[in-house]
Design a binder for these strands. Structure first.
Length: 183
DNA sequence: TACTCGATCGGA
DNA sequence: CCGATCGAGTAA
């Protein structure tokens, strides 16, 4: 039983809760040719507000960050280090720039590897998480107990200064064998 | 227009 | 540890 999670499911307030709730959901990709594959989300990071000095929104609204100021439920994809595409889900109400970086899937560790493995690029930037865009989210009934989620500091954000770099907004979850591919 | 610096990764 | 590789953001 797979329940589609439409864009409006990501428009409530509470960036951290929304980020945590992405763990255990499935990121579903339709490939050219029509094949569909679903990947269990195992690691995310939350970025919230202009005050968060680790967030791209720290410099306010710009051409790149405009998508973060829109409604939740759309993809924010950008190029990092001139090499890797990073996939984020914009969350929250309009005018509140918040996003959740998809850092890891079952069997795929690292945000650059996630996009490479699924064939995701900036053409998806600003597009909604919906079937018609070829990249969407589903709840397939996987339960993630709070106690099984490890929170730690976000990766690669030393530039944000000690206070913001230390925020425990990276969330990891090790899926039990029964939920894993082939398990 | 001229810089600087990345929400990373793979190979020395 | 280091280089790749390029666009956003800033200063001028």
């Amino acid at each position: 039983m797979a329940r589609l999670l439409p864009p409006h499911a990501w428009r409530s307030k509470g960036t951290i809760a929304l980020a945590r709730s992405l763990l255990g959901k499935h990121l579903v990709r339709r490939r050219r040719g029509g094949g569909v594959e679903a990947h269990l989300i195992t690691e995310v990071e939350a970025y919230q507000g202009e005050a968060d000095l680790a967030s791209h929104a720290r410099r306010g609204r710009t051409a790149r960050t405009a998508v973060m100021y829109g409604r939740g439920g759309v993809w924010y994809v950008y190029l990092c280090y001139g090499v890797h595409e990073m996939l984020n889900l914009v969350v929250g109400p309009p005018e509140h720039p918040a996003a959740v970086l998809i850092r890891g899937l079952d069997g795929i560790s690292g945000p650059g590897r996630v996009t490479r493995a699924l064939g995701i690029g900036r053409e998806l930037n600003g597009k909604p998480a919906a079937r018609r865009t070829g990249l969407w989210l589903e709840d397939r009934g996987v339960r993630v107990p709070r106690g099984r989620v490890r929170a730690s500091a976000r990766v690669g954000v030393a530039y944000a200064g000690p206070v913001w770099a230390a925020k425990p907004w990276r969330f990891r979850w090790e899926p039990p064998a029964r939920y894993r591919a082939g398990g």
